[in-house]
Design a protein around this nucleic acid. Structure first.
Length: 556
RNA sequence: GACCUAGUAGCUCAGCUGGAUAGAGCAACGCCCUUCUAAGGCGUAGGUCGCAGGUUCGAAUCCUGCCUGGGUCGCCA
């Protein structure tokens, strides 16, 4: 149930009826009616631009059309107080004072579920995100993707989609061999031997740690076994170790997955061969220079791509195609990938593969996450002071806390590069948007606690006509919009809209708080009405923060 | 050279997929705590929406061309 949507639906219906009644256009010719919420209060509660859109169809001046519509409008049915025609032909609707009176009782009733809707109609969506190679720590780019993907999934779920979260483990490529060889080197070093790192070896402290651990557990036992046996063991050992680290970090960050999908399993289950066969049978492959190629240029890629290299092994693309085939065969209406900006060039070839496998282009989309810079003392921090390497998610969480990291990562559009201001995130002050929003929530909690000690109860049976001030109306409109905001954020795959929404709501709350006193024992009717409103706002803020994975403290 | 992405107030960013006088936060300046949390509020100032064309009733938003920052162009993953 969505109060605001219902109101808009009714209003649109009446506008349409008025257009037909004044014979401005046939029903089939009427364009989709758009209602906006004007920024300017003198423009009413809703504004329609339909008169301008109809100008060409009705062959009349927009203002004349607007007048015809208004003359035929059933104001009673649409719950309208007053209608104005303004500017080039906008129709401004002023609703009756009580038009939002249903919203607070609804929120009180729905509680934690307020904001949820069926906008997605249960459509099955799968989001694959993070999917970092298990060869080292999560750094900030990954973390931004993790926060984005997680909140996107929350938003999808709240908007009525059936969403699954998945992590694709790259446990089969060269990088894992490299990991094993790097561990081998560190193992030997831990035993006091000299050893060289492989050319593309991993130099992180984690690998040194693994080497030491192996030396402590097994001594030089593994040196006496064959190279193949040893490397194979180290591969598994390293993979488990690294994956555990990643899982631990993500868990601490509040990110969980429904499924961890192993690339290796694609080999074991013959999925790669199947995918290759399908592409070949459809005529999308060919042989050249001793390699097997995919004709991705038939689907707007700028060059064809190698599937099987001269040495007989696969490129990264090949198992990935098999993986996407598998995903889509599992019945998802849409699969979404969250990738770093450095992988954007990979999108056209994957999109080509989806289409070559016979799926519609829209079944697949990629959200590109732009780079993150850490800024401290006004300067970009290239390396962690502590480790001398790229700053990791773990360090950042320890530094500024999970709430701030998550909020900051989601605060901006994923299309924009992000400067993560560590000083700002650390500061427990008004400059920090996380605290600003949380403070609004805590403030309401305090008020409600005060009210409770005075025996004032939260009730649906309050007098809604008492909430007429501008600031109260602003709050009512804002909380009423919540389900639609979520649905729009899901549709646009833009979770950052939730941060903007809740920030605006916090602003309105603070403004109201400073202007009016909620608990007033000389006017219990008003007090009850405001307590009901405050409870509804509290619920809406808490539910927003829940979507963001940020805590909603009761006191600060 | 090609592709992706960004260019909006001194700084960091919104601008709801084409609407009315372009908005926030920070920084600056001036006010508001004997009153439910001042981690807050109110106000002032601050703009050639990168540049140039085009599309139309209307463009920060759409199209074309150029300029600038970032990213990417492997039989790496």
């Amino acid at each position: 149930m969505n109060v605001l949507a219902d109101i808009e639906q009714t209003l649109k219906g009446e506008i349409k009826a008025a257009i037909i009644a004044s014979s401005l256009a046939d029903e089939a010719d009427i364009p989709a009616i758009n209602l906006e919420k004007p920024k300017e209060k003198s423009h009413g509660d809703f504004a329609a631009n339909i008169a301008m859109q109809l100008a060409r169809i009705a062959k009349k001046a927009p203002r004349q059309i607007a007048e015809d519509i208004v003359a035929h409008l059933d104001k009673e049915k649409a719950n309208i107080e007053k209608v104005d025609i303004a500017g080039p032909g906008f129709i401004n609707f002023f609703m009756k004072d009580n038009f939002l009176s249903d919203i607070v009782p609804l929120i009180l009733k729905q509680g934690k579920d307020y904001g949820r809707s069926n906008a997605g109609n249960g459509k099955r969506v799968q989001v694959e995100f993070v999917s970092v190679n298990p060869t080292g720590d999560l750094h900030l780019g990954h973390a931004r993707g993790a926060a984005f993907g997680d909140v996107l999934c929350n938003v999808f779920a709240a908007a009525g989609y059936d969403v699954d979260r998945e992590y694709y483990i790259n446990d089969a490529g060269n990088q894992i061999d490299n990991l094993a060889l790097s561990i081998d080197t560190r193992y030997k070093e831990a035993l006091g031997q000299e050893a060289d790192m492989p050319e593309d070896g991993y130099h992180g402290n984690d690998i040194i740690e693994i080497g030491k651990e192996l030396a402590e557990k097994y001594g030089d036992e593994w040196l006496h076994k064959g190279h193949e046996t040893r490397i194979s063991f180290f591969r598994d050992y390293g993979l488990t170790f690294e994956l555990d680290q990643i899982k631990k970090d993500l868990d601490a960050f509040g990110v969980r997955f429904d499924r961890w999908f192993s690339e290796l399993s694609l080999y074991e289950d013959n999925k790669i061969i199947e995918a290759l066969n399908e592409l070949q049978e459809s005529g999308y492959t060919y042989e050249k220079d001793g390699a097997t190629w995919f004709k991705s240029t038939e689907f707007e890629d700028d060059k064809d791509r190698v599937l099987i290299k001269q040495d007989g092994t696969y490129t990264y693309l090949t198992p990935d195609i098999a993986y996407h085939k598998d995903k889509l065969e599992r019945g998802y209406g849409k699969v979404i990938n969250v990738w770093g900006a450095d992988h954007h060039g990979y999108v056209p070839r994957m999109s080509a593969a989806i289409q070559a496998l016979g799926y519609p282009q829209e079944a697949f989309s990629v959200s590109i996450i732009q780079m993150v810079n850490v800024v401290e003392d006004g300067e970009i921090v290239r390396m962690s002071k502590r480790t001398g390497r790229a700053v990791t998610l773990r360090e950042l969480m320890e530094d500024v806390g999970v709430d701030a990291v998550r909020y900051f990562f989601i605060m901006r559009s994923n299309d924009s590069q992000l400067d993560f201001d560590v000083d700002l995130a650390r500061s427990e002050s008004n400059e920090n948007p996380v605290y600003y929003v949380q403070y609004a929530h805590a403030r309401i909690c305090t008020m409600l606690a005060q009210a409770a000690t005075r025996g004032i109860k939260v009730t649906e049976n309050y007098d809604a006509t008492l909430l007429q001030s501008e600031k109260e109306q602003d709050l009512l409109k804002q909380i009423a919009a919540f389900p639609q905001i979520i649905a729009d954020a899901a549709q646009a795959e833009a979770p950052y809209r939730i941060t903007q929404y809740v920030y605006d709501l916090a602003t309105m709350l603070h403004s109201f708080y400073n202007a009016e006193k909620v608990i007033n024992e000389d006017d219990m009717a008003l007090t009850e009405a405001r307590i009901a409103l405050m409870t509804a706002v509290q619920t809406t803020i808490a539910n927003s923060l829940q979507l963001l994975g940020v805590t909603a403290p009761e006191s600060m």
